[in-house]
């Protein structure tokens, strides 16, 4: 079974190249040891502290966290938010990337400039924009009111619903960027072959376009999902104090409730969830190879 898998995997890849010769040891020490040591230390020390705090007193803090209804609420809210954000951004991101590839010049310019605006302005600034839009008498109300669609101030701000559009907007660029490269690299001969064989747009999309993009969509989706799980600013500012995500709850435990141990326990659980999700996805879909070269 393992052999079969290896075989399939190597068949799916470009021909293996000659590897560089074994590196001399001094080279290894400088190139490998320094960054490894730095990262290992910077990751292990905080993790050890968190684990130590949450496991003290026979795991009392961990039990408190897991037994708290507020925490479980936050977990569901976070998971749901991340899932919706992922599905919407991957779908919308694919459409966006396709439009960049096939749109008329002015549409392309509009789309690319939008992507750049979003990438190069701070997440916080963009979140402020969403706050201003969603405030009871904010910009959105102004627009709807002038169109005659709303006569009472909006009740969106500081609700769970307020977080969704902003999260989608913040995460969308990552999904678009993940798919954009593969969209331009779709095999033209395959497209031509589909056209010659008389395949319509839907059939071509299903048999040529989608299979070429699937890997990128998955790795982009994993990135968005994992980042959404731990996102902080946008849910905090838009969801408000009564609709906390796990990140917001940890923040509250540490900074206002002064329960460092419970905050640490929740942090451990959150890290376990996100890193676990990432490692499983990496195992299943080889995400990091797509991100970090083969």
């Amino acid at each position: 079974m393992t052999d079969q898998l290896t075989l399939r995997r190597s068949a799916a890849r470009p021909a293996p190249r000659a590897r560089p010769r074994p590196a001399p040891s001094a080279e290894r020490v400088v190139l490998l040891a320094a960054p490894l040591l730095f990262l290992a230390l910077m990751l292990a020390a905080p993790l050890a502290e968190l684990l130590g705090r949450s496991l003290a007193d026979g795991g009392a803090a961990l039990r408190t966290a897991l037994g708290s209804a507020v925490f479980l609420d936050a977990v569901w809210r976070t998971l749901w938010l991340a899932l919706v954000a992922t599905l919407v951004t991957v779908g919308l991101g694919t459409v966006y990337a396709l439009a960049v590839a096939v749109g008329p010049a002015w549409v392309r310019a509009f789309l690319v400039a939008g992507l750049l605006v979003s990438l190069w302005t701070s997440v916080m600034v963009r979140t402020f924009g969403w706050m201003l839009l969603e405030l009871p008498t904010g910009a959105l109300y102004w627009l709807l009111h002038n169109l005659g669609l709303a006569d009472a101030p909006l009740q969106v701000f500081q609700t769970t619903a307020a977080m969704y559009p902003a999260m989608v907007a913040v995460m969308l660029p990552f999904a678009v960027l993940a798919v954009l490269g593969p969209v331009t690299a779709i095999d033209r001969d395959l497209l031509a072959a589909a056209a010659v064989s008389g395949a319509g747009p839907l059939l071509t999309f299903r048999t040529v376009v989608l299979p070429s993009l699937r890997g990128a969509m998955i790795s982009g989706g994993v990135l968005v999902f994992v980042m959404s799980l731990g996102f902080y600013v946008t849910p905090l500012l838009l969801g408000g104090p009564s609709n906390l995500t796990v990140s917001g709850l940890i923040n509250a435990q540490l900074r206002t409730a002064n329960r460092i141990d419970v905050g640490a326990a929740m942090s451990v659980l959150l890290i376990a969830g996100t890193v676990g999700a990432y490692l499983i996805a990496d195992r299943l879909f080889r995400v990091s190879e797509r991100w970090g070269g083969r």
Partner: peptide, 18 residues
């Protein structure tokens, strides 16, 4: 590769708390 990419997957709040 995993070690270098995993910081993206660690939620900043949890990392900051640690």
């Amino acid at each position: 590769r995993t070690l270098f990419i995993v910081p993206i997957a660690i939620p900043p709040v949890a990392y900051g708390a640690g």
